[in-house]
Amino acid sequence: MTADLFTLHPTALLALSGMAAGTYLTRISGFLLLGHLRPQGRLGAALDALPGAVLIALVAPQVAAGGVLMWVASAVTIVAARRLPTLLAIVAGVATLLLLRWVVA
C-alpha cells in the first residue's frame, strides 16, 4: 500500500493534464471574451442577474427532489441567512434537516 502512495502513471498524468487544461479554459474564457467590454444596458442587466441565477440553478433540482423536509430546511436557511452570519445560517439549515429526518424516521 505504502509503495504505491506516490505512483504517477503516465496515462493518469495525461488524463489529469487534459482535465486541468479543460477546466482552466472554462475559467478564463468568459474573462477573455468579455474582459475588454464595459457591460451596460441589457448586457449589464444580464450579467447583473447572472450570479443569483447560477446559484439557484445549481441547487434547484436537488431541493425540488429533496422532498418537504429539504424545502423546510431551505426556507429556514434563507430566513436565517438574512439575520445571522453565514456559518450560523448553514448550521441552522443543516440542524433543521437532521432534526426533521430524525423526527420522521
Binding site: G22, T23, T26, R27, G30, F31
Partner: peptide, 16 residues
C-alpha cells in the same frame, strides 16, 4: 470535466 465546468465561462464573464 470541461462540460461540468462550463458554468465557469458564465462566472468568469460576470467577474471580468
Amino acid at each position: 470535466v470541461f462540460v461540468v465546468n462550463l458554468r465557469h465561462v458564465l462566472m468568469s464573464a460576470a467577474i471580468a
